[in-house]
Design a protein around this nucleic acid. Structure first.
Lengths: 108, 108
DNA sequence: TATCTTTATTGTAATATCACGTTACAATTT
DNA sequence: AAATTGTAACGTGATATTACAATAAAGATA
């Protein structure tokens, strides 16, 4: 029905899916890369970097914000984005652990 | 337009997104977990394990198959699924490297 | 004040996804 | 041969996603 039955899955499964879903679009991968490579990166920089329209970039940014992966600093009319490294590292470990657990289970 | 502009992104970005997109649904996370935990796991086992209808499970399986993460062995009327550990490990490293690169870039 | 810049929001069209009933088909069992 | 079992494919409805034009809102600048 186009509606995911989250309630029939456990927290671990839902959280793993939530994180990877955000990474599951090339624009968001590109946005995360670009922010990591450029300090004081604002929305317009990302528009230029991706070639997408400003509302589209803004929409993708809000998806990334939903999982707390971004910090933003308002400076005058500008909004500068940065990666939250604590969260990033937390997610890196979480996703890596998922892969490792699957691997270990297979080898039992 | 609901249609992703893959052509404006590079291979690395598209491949990263392709892999994570498959993990971006709790049913597929659950299916991968269950297959890793049960040798000789067939479609019906996954139907029972997830609580989803058989066609739904079959559809999710085909998404996971698209990125070569599954091996299948036909035995009579049964089809047994297993994780392709080489591919899994390849993807684990790829996704982990993505996170690490972002982290390293931020710290420059 | 009027204008420009920057970002978020709203609305909308096109497409994709999720879920499942139905059907088809192959292999097994009776 | 007929019935049963297991899986994939087809079709479809409901919802979500992607993309963007238009607009709003807030701050900067002329």
């Amino acid at each position: 029905m186009g509606i995911t039955k989250n309630h029939i899955f456990d927290d671990y499964q839902n959280e793993t899916a939530l994180i990877t879903k955000v990474l599951g679009h090339p624009a968001r991968v590109a946005i995360i890369q670009h922010i990591s490579q450029h300090e004081y990166c604002n929305c317009n920089d990302l528009v230029k970097a991706t070639g997408l329209a400003q509302p589209t970039v803004s929409q993708h940014l809000s998806e990334i914000k939903k999982i707390q992966l971004l910090k933003q600093k308002h400076q005058g009319k500008n909004t500068f984005y940065a990666i939250d490294l604590d969260i990033l590292n937390q997610y890196r470990r979480k996703i890596n652990d998922f892969f490792v657990k699957v691997q270990v289970n297979c080898q039992k």
